[in-house]
Design a protein around this nucleic acid. Structure first.
Lengths: 207, 207
DNA sequence: TCAATTATGTACCGAACGGTACAAAATAAC
DNA sequence: GTTATTTTGTACCGTTCGGTACATAATTGA
Protein backbone atom coordinates (compact mmCIF):
# COMPACT_ATOMS: atom_id res chain seq x y z
CA UNK A 1 0.00 0.00 0.00
CA UNK A 2 1.15 3.53 -0.67
CA UNK A 3 2.25 5.75 2.13
CA UNK A 4 0.77 9.09 3.15
CA UNK A 5 -2.66 10.58 3.77
CA UNK A 6 -5.45 9.22 1.62
CA UNK A 7 -7.32 11.33 -0.91
CA UNK A 8 -10.64 12.38 0.57
CA UNK A 9 -12.54 12.54 -2.74
CA UNK A 10 -13.21 10.20 -5.64
CA UNK A 11 -10.96 11.30 -8.47
CA UNK A 12 -13.18 9.78 -11.11
CA UNK A 13 -16.28 11.51 -9.76
CA UNK A 14 -14.39 14.78 -9.57
CA UNK A 15 -13.28 14.43 -13.18
CA UNK A 16 -16.85 13.76 -14.18
CA UNK A 17 -18.02 16.94 -12.50
CA UNK A 18 -15.21 18.92 -14.11
CA UNK A 19 -16.18 17.52 -17.51
CA UNK A 20 -19.75 18.68 -17.02
CA UNK A 21 -18.62 22.14 -15.99
CA UNK A 22 -16.47 22.51 -19.11
CA UNK A 23 -19.33 21.07 -21.13
CA UNK A 24 -21.65 23.72 -19.77
CA UNK A 25 -19.38 26.76 -19.71
CA UNK A 26 -16.45 26.01 -21.98
CA UNK A 27 -12.74 26.26 -21.28
CA UNK A 28 -12.48 30.03 -20.95
CA UNK A 29 -15.86 30.23 -19.26
CA UNK A 30 -14.89 27.85 -16.47
CA UNK A 31 -12.63 29.21 -13.75
CA UNK A 32 -10.53 27.19 -11.35
CA UNK A 33 -12.68 28.57 -8.55
CA UNK A 34 -15.79 27.29 -10.33
CA UNK A 35 -14.12 23.90 -10.49
CA UNK A 36 -13.01 23.70 -6.86
CA UNK A 37 -16.43 24.92 -5.74
CA UNK A 38 -18.37 22.39 -7.81
CA UNK A 39 -15.98 19.52 -7.12
CA UNK A 40 -16.04 20.26 -3.40
CA UNK A 41 -12.28 20.31 -3.08
CA UNK A 42 -9.73 23.07 -2.65
CA UNK A 43 -7.13 24.29 -5.08
CA UNK A 44 -4.06 22.40 -3.89
CA UNK A 45 -6.05 19.16 -4.07
CA UNK A 46 -7.17 19.96 -7.60
CA UNK A 47 -3.69 20.92 -8.76
CA UNK A 48 -2.18 17.88 -7.08
CA UNK A 49 -4.69 15.51 -8.65
CA UNK A 50 -5.01 17.00 -12.15
CA UNK A 51 -1.94 19.19 -12.77
CA UNK A 52 -3.48 22.46 -13.84
CA UNK A 53 -6.54 23.81 -15.62
CA UNK A 54 -5.30 22.87 -19.06
CA UNK A 55 -4.42 19.30 -18.10
CA UNK A 56 -7.70 18.92 -16.28
CA UNK A 57 -9.52 20.00 -19.40
CA UNK A 58 -7.56 17.54 -21.51
CA UNK A 59 -8.47 14.78 -19.06
CA UNK A 60 -12.12 15.83 -19.08
CA UNK A 61 -12.14 15.85 -22.86
CA UNK A 62 -10.57 12.40 -23.03
CA UNK A 63 -13.08 11.13 -20.53
CA UNK A 64 -15.89 12.56 -22.62
CA UNK A 65 -14.64 10.88 -25.76
CA UNK A 66 -13.99 7.60 -23.98
CA UNK A 67 -17.30 7.48 -22.12
CA UNK A 68 -19.68 9.03 -24.65
CA UNK A 69 -18.32 9.33 -28.18
CA UNK A 70 -16.19 6.19 -28.48
CA UNK A 71 -18.78 3.61 -27.33
CA UNK A 72 -21.34 4.89 -29.83
CA UNK A 73 -18.79 4.87 -32.62
CA UNK A 74 -17.68 1.38 -31.67
CA UNK A 75 -21.23 0.11 -31.71
CA UNK A 76 -21.63 1.58 -35.17
CA UNK A 77 -18.52 -0.04 -36.59
CA UNK A 78 -18.93 -3.42 -34.94
CA UNK A 79 -20.01 -5.91 -37.61
CA UNK A 80 -23.72 -6.44 -37.46
CA UNK A 81 -26.51 -8.19 -39.31
CA UNK A 82 -28.43 -4.96 -39.68
CA UNK A 83 -28.15 -2.92 -42.86
CA UNK A 84 -25.85 0.08 -42.71
CA UNK A 85 -28.70 2.55 -42.92
CA UNK A 86 -30.29 1.04 -39.84
CA UNK A 87 -27.04 1.12 -37.88
CA UNK A 88 -26.42 4.72 -38.80
CA UNK A 89 -29.94 5.52 -37.78
CA UNK A 90 -29.27 4.04 -34.37
CA UNK A 91 -25.97 5.85 -34.16
CA UNK A 92 -27.55 9.20 -34.90
CA UNK A 93 -30.37 8.44 -32.53
CA UNK A 94 -27.85 7.78 -29.75
CA UNK A 95 -26.00 10.99 -30.53
CA UNK A 96 -29.22 12.96 -30.43
CA UNK A 97 -30.08 11.39 -27.10
CA UNK A 98 -26.67 12.47 -25.83
CA UNK A 99 -26.80 16.08 -27.03
CA UNK A 100 -30.36 16.69 -25.90
CA UNK A 101 -30.23 14.74 -22.65
CA UNK A 102 -31.98 16.54 -19.82
CA UNK A 103 -29.43 15.52 -17.19
CA UNK A 104 -26.44 16.82 -19.14
CA UNK A 105 -25.46 20.15 -20.69
CA UNK A 106 -26.98 20.64 -24.13
CA UNK A 107 -24.90 19.89 -27.18
CA UNK A 108 -21.60 18.08 -27.54
CA UNK A 109 -18.48 18.94 -25.55
CA UNK A 110 -16.29 18.06 -28.48
CA UNK A 111 -18.14 20.32 -30.91
CA UNK A 112 -18.29 23.12 -28.37
CA UNK A 113 -14.58 22.83 -27.67
CA UNK A 114 -13.74 22.67 -31.37
CA UNK A 115 -15.54 25.96 -31.90
CA UNK A 116 -13.86 27.56 -28.92
CA UNK A 117 -10.44 26.32 -30.01
CA UNK A 118 -8.19 28.10 -32.44
CA UNK A 119 -8.10 31.38 -30.55
CA UNK A 120 -5.80 32.73 -27.87
CA UNK A 121 -8.18 31.68 -25.07
CA UNK A 122 -7.49 27.97 -25.64
CA UNK A 123 -4.00 26.46 -25.31
CA UNK A 124 -2.42 25.33 -28.56
CA UNK A 125 -2.06 21.70 -27.43
CA UNK A 126 -5.80 21.52 -26.78
CA UNK A 127 -6.57 22.85 -30.23
CA UNK A 128 -4.30 20.26 -31.81
CA UNK A 129 -5.76 17.44 -29.71
CA UNK A 130 -9.25 18.40 -30.86
CA UNK A 131 -8.13 18.48 -34.47
CA UNK A 132 -6.63 14.99 -34.24
CA UNK A 133 -9.76 13.65 -32.58
CA UNK A 134 -11.86 14.98 -35.44
CA UNK A 135 -9.58 13.43 -38.05
CA UNK A 136 -9.54 10.13 -36.17
CA UNK A 137 -13.33 10.02 -36.14
CA UNK A 138 -13.37 10.78 -39.83
CA UNK A 139 -10.97 7.91 -40.42
CA UNK A 140 -13.14 5.48 -38.49
CA UNK A 141 -16.26 6.47 -40.40
CA UNK A 142 -14.44 6.46 -43.70
CA UNK A 143 -13.09 2.96 -43.04
CA UNK A 144 -16.57 1.77 -42.20
CA UNK A 145 -17.90 2.98 -45.53
CA UNK A 146 -14.91 1.52 -47.37
CA UNK A 147 -15.55 -1.80 -45.74
CA UNK A 148 -19.22 -1.76 -46.64
CA UNK A 149 -18.28 -0.80 -50.16
CA UNK A 150 -15.77 -3.62 -50.50
CA UNK A 151 -18.52 -6.02 -49.47
CA UNK A 152 -20.76 -4.70 -52.17
CA UNK A 153 -23.24 -3.05 -49.84
CA UNK A 154 -22.47 0.36 -51.26
CA UNK A 155 -22.24 1.43 -54.89
CA UNK A 156 -18.74 1.35 -56.34
CA UNK A 157 -19.19 5.05 -57.12
CA UNK A 158 -19.70 5.95 -53.45
CA UNK A 159 -16.93 7.99 -51.88
CA UNK A 160 -16.30 6.88 -48.29
CA UNK A 161 -14.41 10.03 -47.25
CA UNK A 162 -17.11 12.28 -48.64
CA UNK A 163 -19.78 10.27 -46.90
CA UNK A 164 -17.83 10.47 -43.65
CA UNK A 165 -17.48 14.24 -43.93
CA UNK A 166 -21.14 14.55 -44.74
CA UNK A 167 -22.21 12.43 -41.78
CA UNK A 168 -19.95 14.37 -39.45
CA UNK A 169 -21.29 17.68 -40.67
CA UNK A 170 -24.86 16.56 -39.98
CA UNK A 171 -23.95 15.29 -36.52
CA UNK A 172 -21.97 18.40 -35.67
CA UNK A 173 -24.80 20.56 -36.91
CA UNK A 174 -27.34 18.66 -34.88
CA UNK A 175 -25.32 19.19 -31.75
CA UNK A 176 -25.22 22.93 -32.48
CA UNK A 177 -28.99 22.91 -32.91
CA UNK A 178 -29.29 21.07 -29.61
CA UNK A 179 -27.11 23.68 -27.94
CA UNK A 180 -29.44 26.33 -29.32
CA UNK A 181 -32.20 24.63 -27.38
CA UNK A 182 -34.03 22.88 -30.19
CA UNK A 183 -36.38 20.05 -29.31
CA UNK A 184 -35.27 16.44 -29.57
CA UNK A 185 -38.03 15.45 -32.00
CA UNK A 186 -36.91 18.17 -34.41
CA UNK A 187 -33.38 16.83 -34.29
CA UNK A 188 -34.64 13.32 -34.93
CA UNK A 189 -36.66 14.25 -38.01
CA UNK A 190 -33.71 16.22 -39.38
CA UNK A 191 -31.47 13.20 -38.82
CA UNK A 192 -33.95 10.86 -40.52
CA UNK A 193 -34.02 13.19 -43.46
CA UNK A 194 -30.22 13.16 -43.59
CA UNK A 195 -30.10 9.36 -43.59
CA UNK A 196 -32.62 9.11 -46.39
CA UNK A 197 -30.28 11.19 -48.49
CA UNK A 198 -27.19 9.34 -47.38
CA UNK A 199 -28.33 5.82 -48.13
CA UNK A 200 -31.17 3.93 -49.74
CA UNK A 201 -33.42 2.60 -47.04
CA UNK A 202 -36.73 0.86 -46.60
CA UNK A 203 -37.98 3.75 -44.45
CA UNK A 204 -37.13 6.85 -46.39
CA UNK A 205 -38.48 10.28 -45.44
CA UNK A 206 -41.00 10.09 -48.23
CA UNK A 207 -44.24 8.68 -46.97
CA UNK B 1 -23.18 70.10 -36.43
CA UNK B 2 -22.74 68.58 -32.97
CA UNK B 3 -20.59 70.23 -30.41
CA UNK B 4 -17.53 68.82 -28.69
CA UNK B 5 -14.34 67.03 -29.61
CA UNK B 6 -14.57 64.74 -32.61
CA UNK B 7 -14.05 61.00 -32.38
CA UNK B 8 -10.56 60.17 -33.59
CA UNK B 9 -11.42 56.69 -34.92
CA UNK B 10 -13.89 55.22 -37.37
CA UNK B 11 -16.59 53.58 -35.30
CA UNK B 12 -17.55 51.22 -38.10
CA UNK B 13 -13.97 50.08 -38.64
CA UNK B 14 -13.56 49.59 -34.91
CA UNK B 15 -16.71 47.47 -34.75
CA UNK B 16 -15.41 45.40 -37.61
CA UNK B 17 -12.16 44.73 -35.76
CA UNK B 18 -14.06 43.87 -32.59
CA UNK B 19 -16.23 41.44 -34.56
CA UNK B 20 -13.15 39.67 -35.88
CA UNK B 21 -11.66 39.44 -32.41
CA UNK B 22 -14.81 37.83 -31.02
CA UNK B 23 -14.93 35.64 -34.10
CA UNK B 24 -11.42 34.42 -33.42
CA UNK B 25 -11.45 34.12 -29.63
CA UNK B 26 -15.07 34.05 -28.53
CA UNK B 27 -16.83 36.16 -25.94
CA UNK B 28 -15.09 34.82 -22.83
CA UNK B 29 -11.80 34.50 -24.69
CA UNK B 30 -11.71 38.16 -25.70
CA UNK B 31 -10.80 40.67 -23.01
CA UNK B 32 -11.51 44.38 -23.03
CA UNK B 33 -7.77 44.93 -23.12
CA UNK B 34 -7.52 42.72 -26.22
CA UNK B 35 -10.19 44.89 -27.78
CA UNK B 36 -8.69 48.28 -26.94
CA UNK B 37 -5.29 47.05 -28.08
CA UNK B 38 -6.52 45.72 -31.43
CA UNK B 39 -8.88 48.63 -32.06
CA UNK B 40 -6.16 51.12 -31.26
CA UNK B 41 -8.28 53.05 -28.80
CA UNK B 42 -8.34 53.25 -25.02
CA UNK B 43 -10.96 52.02 -22.63
CA UNK B 44 -12.98 55.20 -22.04
CA UNK B 45 -13.34 55.61 -25.81
CA UNK B 46 -14.51 52.02 -26.16
CA UNK B 47 -17.00 52.28 -23.32
CA UNK B 48 -18.24 55.64 -24.56
CA UNK B 49 -18.74 54.36 -28.10
CA UNK B 50 -20.08 50.85 -27.43
CA UNK B 51 -21.43 50.77 -23.87
CA UNK B 52 -19.66 47.77 -22.41
CA UNK B 53 -18.25 44.42 -23.45
CA UNK B 54 -21.64 42.75 -23.67
CA UNK B 55 -23.19 45.50 -25.77
CA UNK B 56 -20.14 45.60 -28.01
CA UNK B 57 -20.49 41.87 -28.56
CA UNK B 58 -24.17 42.25 -29.38
CA UNK B 59 -23.30 44.98 -31.89
CA UNK B 60 -20.54 42.84 -33.39
CA UNK B 61 -22.91 39.90 -33.70
CA UNK B 62 -25.56 42.05 -35.36
CA UNK B 63 -22.96 43.38 -37.74
CA UNK B 64 -21.87 39.86 -38.59
CA UNK B 65 -25.42 38.78 -39.32
CA UNK B 66 -26.19 41.93 -41.30
CA UNK B 67 -22.97 41.93 -43.35
CA UNK B 68 -22.39 38.21 -43.88
CA UNK B 69 -25.34 35.97 -43.06
CA UNK B 70 -28.28 38.13 -44.14
CA UNK B 71 -27.08 39.01 -47.68
CA UNK B 72 -26.49 35.35 -48.51
CA UNK B 73 -29.86 34.38 -47.15
CA UNK B 74 -31.53 37.19 -49.04
CA UNK B 75 -29.89 36.14 -52.27
CA UNK B 76 -31.17 32.62 -51.68
CA UNK B 77 -34.74 33.68 -51.06
CA UNK B 78 -34.97 36.28 -53.80
CA UNK B 79 -37.12 34.89 -56.63
CA UNK B 80 -34.90 33.58 -59.36
CA UNK B 81 -35.09 31.70 -62.62
CA UNK B 82 -32.68 29.08 -61.39
CA UNK B 83 -33.98 25.84 -59.89
CA UNK B 84 -33.98 25.62 -56.12
CA UNK B 85 -31.19 23.05 -56.03
CA UNK B 86 -28.93 25.38 -57.96
CA UNK B 87 -29.70 28.32 -55.68
CA UNK B 88 -29.03 26.26 -52.59
CA UNK B 89 -25.81 25.09 -54.13
CA UNK B 90 -24.75 28.70 -54.57
CA UNK B 91 -25.88 29.51 -51.06
CA UNK B 92 -23.83 26.72 -49.55
CA UNK B 93 -20.90 27.61 -51.72
CA UNK B 94 -21.03 31.17 -50.40
CA UNK B 95 -21.23 29.95 -46.82
CA UNK B 96 -18.25 27.68 -47.34
CA UNK B 97 -16.32 30.57 -48.83
CA UNK B 98 -17.17 32.60 -45.74
CA UNK B 99 -16.22 29.99 -43.13
CA UNK B 100 -12.98 28.97 -44.84
CA UNK B 101 -11.89 32.41 -45.99
CA UNK B 102 -8.19 32.99 -45.50
CA UNK B 103 -8.58 36.61 -44.45
CA UNK B 104 -11.12 35.88 -41.70
CA UNK B 105 -11.21 33.63 -38.65
CA UNK B 106 -12.21 30.06 -39.51
CA UNK B 107 -15.80 29.00 -39.04
CA UNK B 108 -18.91 31.03 -38.35
CA UNK B 109 -19.21 33.58 -35.54
CA UNK B 110 -22.86 32.70 -35.08
CA UNK B 111 -22.21 28.98 -34.70
CA UNK B 112 -19.25 29.59 -32.44
CA UNK B 113 -21.27 31.94 -30.26
CA UNK B 114 -24.20 29.55 -30.13
CA UNK B 115 -21.93 26.84 -28.79
CA UNK B 116 -20.37 29.17 -26.25
CA UNK B 117 -23.77 30.44 -25.13
CA UNK B 118 -25.94 28.79 -22.53
CA UNK B 119 -23.33 28.81 -19.79
CA UNK B 120 -22.43 31.31 -17.10
CA UNK B 121 -19.64 32.86 -19.18
CA UNK B 122 -22.11 34.40 -21.65
CA UNK B 123 -24.78 36.92 -20.57
CA UNK B 124 -28.33 35.63 -20.69
CA UNK B 125 -29.48 38.30 -23.17
CA UNK B 126 -26.81 37.20 -25.63
CA UNK B 127 -27.91 33.58 -25.37
CA UNK B 128 -31.50 34.57 -26.05
CA UNK B 129 -30.53 36.79 -28.97
CA UNK B 130 -28.62 33.90 -30.54
CA UNK B 131 -31.57 31.60 -30.05
CA UNK B 132 -33.96 34.01 -31.78
CA UNK B 133 -31.53 34.49 -34.65
CA UNK B 134 -31.44 30.75 -35.19
CA UNK B 135 -35.21 30.47 -35.14
CA UNK B 136 -35.53 33.43 -37.51
CA UNK B 137 -33.18 31.80 -39.99
CA UNK B 138 -35.17 28.60 -39.74
CA UNK B 139 -38.34 30.52 -40.47
CA UNK B 140 -36.85 32.12 -43.56
CA UNK B 141 -35.64 28.80 -44.94
CA UNK B 142 -38.89 27.10 -44.05
CA UNK B 143 -40.89 29.79 -45.83
CA UNK B 144 -38.71 29.42 -48.89
CA UNK B 145 -39.43 25.71 -49.09
CA UNK B 146 -43.14 26.31 -48.45
CA UNK B 147 -43.20 28.79 -51.28
CA UNK B 148 -41.46 26.41 -53.66
CA UNK B 149 -43.84 23.71 -52.60
CA UNK B 150 -46.91 25.84 -53.22
CA UNK B 151 -45.61 26.50 -56.72
CA UNK B 152 -45.31 22.81 -57.37
CA UNK B 153 -41.52 22.75 -57.46
CA UNK B 154 -41.37 20.44 -54.47
CA UNK B 155 -43.35 17.27 -53.81
CA UNK B 156 -46.50 17.77 -51.76
CA UNK B 157 -45.04 15.29 -49.27
CA UNK B 158 -41.98 17.47 -48.60
CA UNK B 159 -41.81 18.98 -45.14
CA UNK B 160 -40.43 22.54 -45.27
CA UNK B 161 -39.55 22.75 -41.59
CA UNK B 162 -37.70 19.45 -41.68
CA UNK B 163 -35.83 20.51 -44.78
CA UNK B 164 -34.92 23.79 -43.11
CA UNK B 165 -33.61 22.02 -40.01
CA UNK B 166 -31.68 19.62 -42.17
CA UNK B 167 -30.10 22.36 -44.24
CA UNK B 168 -29.16 24.29 -41.12
CA UNK B 169 -27.60 21.24 -39.52
CA UNK B 170 -25.42 20.68 -42.58
CA UNK B 171 -24.39 24.31 -42.71
CA UNK B 172 -23.68 24.47 -38.97
CA UNK B 173 -21.72 21.25 -39.22
CA UNK B 174 -19.69 22.52 -42.11
CA UNK B 175 -18.74 25.61 -40.19
CA UNK B 176 -17.57 23.40 -37.30
CA UNK B 177 -15.49 21.38 -39.74
CA UNK B 178 -14.05 24.62 -41.07
CA UNK B 179 -13.17 25.70 -37.55
CA UNK B 180 -11.39 22.39 -37.10
CA UNK B 181 -9.18 23.40 -40.01
CA UNK B 182 -10.62 21.20 -42.74
CA UNK B 183 -9.85 22.11 -46.34
CA UNK B 184 -12.34 24.04 -48.43
CA UNK B 185 -12.60 21.38 -51.14
CA UNK B 186 -13.59 18.80 -48.54
CA UNK B 187 -16.34 21.09 -47.32
CA UNK B 188 -17.54 21.62 -50.87
CA UNK B 189 -17.79 17.93 -51.68
CA UNK B 190 -19.63 17.30 -48.42
CA UNK B 191 -22.05 20.12 -49.27
CA UNK B 192 -22.62 18.75 -52.78
CA UNK B 193 -23.39 15.40 -51.26
CA UNK B 194 -25.87 17.02 -48.89
CA UNK B 195 -27.66 18.80 -51.73
CA UNK B 196 -27.96 15.61 -53.76
CA UNK B 197 -29.84 14.12 -50.83
CA UNK B 198 -31.92 17.21 -50.25
CA UNK B 199 -33.23 17.73 -53.72
CA UNK B 200 -33.30 16.09 -57.14
CA UNK B 201 -30.72 17.75 -59.32
CA UNK B 202 -29.12 17.42 -62.72
CA UNK B 203 -25.66 17.25 -61.15
CA UNK B 204 -25.98 14.72 -58.38
CA UNK B 205 -22.98 13.35 -56.51
CA UNK B 206 -23.12 10.17 -58.53
CA UNK B 207 -20.85 10.36 -61.52
C1' DT C 1 6.38 5.46 18.81
C1' DC C 2 8.30 7.87 15.46
C1' DA C 3 9.83 9.23 11.00
C1' DA C 4 8.58 9.61 6.13
C1' DT C 5 5.11 10.69 3.00
C1' DT C 6 0.95 12.43 1.05
C1' DA C 7 -3.35 15.28 1.22
C1' DT C 8 -5.81 19.17 3.12
C1' DG C 9 -6.94 24.00 4.52
C1' DT C 10 -5.65 28.70 4.72
C1' DA C 11 -3.74 32.39 3.13
C1' DC C 12 -1.53 34.53 -0.23
C1' DC C 13 0.99 35.78 -4.88
C1' DG C 14 1.39 38.86 -9.12
C1' DA C 15 -1.33 39.51 -13.10
C1' DA C 16 -5.35 40.29 -15.57
C1' DC C 17 -10.25 41.09 -15.36
C1' DG C 18 -14.33 44.58 -16.47
C1' DG C 19 -15.16 49.13 -15.58
C1' DT C 20 -14.56 54.21 -14.15
C1' DA C 21 -12.92 59.06 -12.09
C1' DC C 22 -10.76 62.80 -13.56
C1' DA C 23 -8.20 66.14 -15.85
C1' DA C 24 -6.39 67.65 -20.29
C1' DA C 25 -7.32 68.29 -25.19
C1' DA C 26 -10.18 69.43 -28.97
C1' DT C 27 -14.22 71.21 -31.17
C1' DA C 28 -18.59 74.14 -32.06
C1' DA C 29 -21.63 77.86 -30.78
C1' DC C 30 -21.81 82.37 -29.13
C1' DG D 1 -11.95 84.68 -26.90
C1' DT D 2 -14.80 82.55 -23.95
C1' DT D 3 -17.85 78.88 -22.76
C1' DA D 4 -20.17 74.56 -23.16
C1' DT D 5 -19.61 70.00 -24.73
C1' DT D 6 -17.47 65.80 -26.10
C1' DT D 7 -13.36 62.73 -26.56
C1' DT D 8 -8.93 61.38 -25.08
C1' DG D 9 -5.14 59.69 -22.02
C1' DT D 10 -3.74 58.25 -17.56
C1' DA D 11 -4.25 56.30 -13.59
C1' DC D 12 -6.84 53.77 -10.80
C1' DC D 13 -10.94 50.97 -8.64
C1' DG D 14 -12.38 46.41 -6.48
C1' DT D 15 -12.64 41.67 -8.09
C1' DT D 16 -11.27 37.58 -10.04
C1' DC D 17 -7.81 35.11 -12.57
C1' DG D 18 -4.50 30.82 -12.51
C1' DG D 19 -1.34 29.13 -9.43
C1' DT D 20 1.46 28.27 -5.02
C1' DA D 21 3.93 28.44 -0.05
C1' DC D 22 3.35 26.66 4.05
C1' DA D 23 1.72 24.69 8.07
C1' DT D 24 -1.28 21.00 9.65
C1' DA D 25 -3.66 16.55 9.43
C1' DA D 26 -3.70 11.82 8.27
C1' DT D 27 -1.69 7.52 6.92
C1' DT D 28 1.92 3.71 6.38
C1' DG D 29 6.39 1.48 7.22
C1' DA D 30 9.88 0.82 10.45
Amino acid sequence: MSVGRKRSFDKSEALDKAMRLFWENGYSGTSVSDLTEQLGINKPSLYSAFGNKEKLFQSALERYMACYAAPLLEQLTTPDEQPLAERIRHYMSNIIELVSDKTSPKGCLFVKSSCEAGGTGVPEEVTQALQSMGLATRQVLSSLFEQEQSRGRLPATAEPKVMADYLMSVLYGISVLARQGRRKDELITAAEFAISGLLPSQTSHEH
